[in-house]
Computed example of a mutant assay.
Amino acid sequence: MNAQLSDFLRSRRARLSPQDVGLAGYGRRRVPGLRREEVAQLAGVSTDYYIRLEQGRGRQVSDAVLDAVSRALRLDPTEHAYLHDLARPHRATGRGRQPIRRSVRHLLESMRDTPAIVVDHRMVIVTANALGVAVFGLTDDLRSRDRARQFFLDPKSRAFFPDWAADAESVAAELRLQAARRPDDQRLTALIGELCIKSAEFRTLWADHKVREKTQGRKRINHPTVGELVFTFERLALADDDEQTLIVYTVEPGSPTAERLAVLASWTAAHDAGAEAEWRKDNDTAAH
């Protein structure tokens, strides 16, 4: 965590110039961005104190100092929270993933015309409604539900997500945020390590130290059966569960996506009905 804190502070310094923060730029600079003493001046702390903080040697740093450094570096709210997580990481509660409540399952099942999924903090799809399964091509193979690995390690994801480059930045930024919140999560650490080793794109994005938590936005996919689908998504917290979130994908009524989604929904319903009929037939035969 100390190394991540050091790298993050240096990366945020590097993106600012003295002119950005109202300082005069004196002398030639060997590296871009603000000097440490300039950040210390803006934050109202001693240069030695800031250097120790940036080197990960600042013990028991106060909220006031972190807030001052955040203002000095022009951090946005997500980066501000990330700085606090890095400087004073909290430890996991040990509760682990909570089972999906029956009420959440009923909610998913009631959304027959809207794709919806539940994901955990490692970007694994825990469960989905029927249309969510159809849209994202989920199967019994757990690899189809491991969104981060599939996104960076499966070449087909570049065709499935037309905005792959922008989406990749969001995925890496979200994982960095989760890693700071859960420093003791060994599976999350292993996921990030694997992606750094196997994906040059992820390795580059990880080195940028961007953090972002996307709670809503636009998502475009190129579905192999019905073609392009354009969604607006909302990411919703589940009560008493800080590891899993519900993501709902809505469409503009009367749009081409709405028409294509209706076709996909009808195929899904027909497939489900056929599967249920086959199941009943097999059970009736077994009973006799």
Rank of each mutant, 00 (worst) to 15 (best):
V248N: 13
A72H: 02
V61N: 02
L138Y: 10
Y249L: 12
F231C: 11
V124E: 09
L175F: 10
D76C: 10
A40M: 00
P162G: 05
F8N: 01
S157G: 03
A24P: 12
G96A: 06
R101N: 03
Q216Y: 14
A258I: 00
H90I: 08
T93C: 04
T257D: 09
D20K: 06
F151D: 13
V126W: 01
H106Y: 15
L246Y: 13
W206T: 05
Y26Q: 11
D20N: 01
F151S: 07
L75F: 11
E213W: 14
N222F: 06
R30T: 00
G33T: 03
R220D: 11
E54K: 01
L108P: 02
E278P: 07
R28Q: 10
I100F: 10
Y50F: 13
E54Y: 02
R182A: 14
T139V: 06
I100H: 02
R12A: 02
E54Q: 01
D67Y: 05
R101Y: 02
I192N: 10
E37N: 04
K219D: 09
F161P: 13
Q19F: 08
V230W: 09
R280A: 09
V65S: 02
P155V: 04
A258V: 05
L261R: 04
S255T: 01
A130W: 08
A87I: 11
S11P: 00
L108F: 06
E278L: 12
A237S: 07
Y50P: 03
T245S: 14
V251W: 12
E259W: 07
A148D: 08
S170L: 15
T78A: 15
L236F: 13
Q244N: 06
D282R: 12
H209R: 12
L9S: 05
Y26P: 03
D208Q: 14
R260S: 08
Q60I: 00
A128N: 11
P253I: 00
E37H: 01
D140E: 15
W279E: 05
D154T: 07
P77V: 14
I197K: 10
R97Y: 15
L177G: 13
L177T: 07
A277F: 01
I51F: 04
V69Q: 00
